[in-house]
Amino acid sequence: MFILSGLHTFGAYLRLMGRVFSRPERMRIFFKQCLKEMAQLGVGSIGIVLLISFFIGAVICIQIKLNIQSAWMPMWVSGYTTREIMLLEFSSSIMCLILAGKVGSNIASELGAMRTTQQIDALEIMGVNSASFLILPKIVGLVAMIPFLVIFSTTSGVIGAYATAYIGHIITPTDLTAGMQHDFTQWYFWMGAIKSLFFAFIIASVSSFYGYTVEGGSNEVGKASTNAVVSSSMLILFSDMFLTQLLS
C-alpha cells in the first residue's frame, strides 16, 4: 500500500514536471519572474546561510581543536578538517537541508494559498499554463542562486573558524591558516557546487509539487508545507549518498 501510494505520488510529480518544463508564453514575463524568485528565494536566504554557517564553522573548529586534536596530530588538523567539512558536506548538503525548511515551506505555502484562493484556477481559465508560469521561475531562480549561497556559506564558515582564533583564542591564526591551506583540492569546491544544483532542484520542484496539488483549506496548506520539507529533506539526504559516491 505504501509503495503504491509512493508510486502514485511520484507519477503525479512527473506529470506536473512535464507541464512545468514547457516553453514560457512570454519570455519577458518569465525573466521578470525568475529575477523575482532569485531575490525572494536566493537573496532572501543569504542572511540565514551566513549566520548558520558562521557558527557551524566556529563550532567545528572548536570541537576538533578541543575534543579530537591530540599531541600526535599536526597542529593544522583543526583548520584542515573545518575547511573540508564546510566544502564537502556542510555548505552543500546541510545548508540545503536548512534551505529545504526555509525555502521549501515558503514555496509550498505560497502555492497552496494560491490554490485555495482560486488564483491558480484563475490562471488556468485565462489560458495560462499555471504550472509552468508559477513553478519554472522558482526552479530556475533557486538553481541559479544556490552556487552563490554555497560560496557564501563556505566563506562564512571559514570566517567563523577564524573568529575562534582571533576572538576565542582556541587556536592560533597561524595553525588555522596552515590547516586551511593544507592539501587544498579545488574539485571539492566544484563537487559541493554541483551537488547543490541537484539539491536546489529537489527543494524547488518537490515543494512546488506539494503546494500546487493542495486540495482543501488552510489545514491542507499546512500539511503540504510539512510534507514539502520532509520529502525534500529525505530526497536531499538520499541523493547526497549517490552524488557523493559519483563525484568523489
Binding site: I29, E124, I125
Partner: peptide
C-alpha cells in the same frame, strides 16, 4: 480560454500584484 473571463467567489486576485497589475496581467500575457 482567451475568449473567456471569469469572476471567482473569492475574487482570486493575485496577492503579489497591485490592482493595476492584476488588470493588466491578461494583456501582458496575451
Amino acid at each position: 480560454r482567451r475568449e473567456m473571463g471569469m469572476i471567482f467567489q473569492s475574487a482570486a486576485l493575485f496577492d503579489s500584484m497591485t490592482v493595476l497589475e492584476n488588470v493588466m496581467f491578461p494583456l501582458d500575457m496575451f
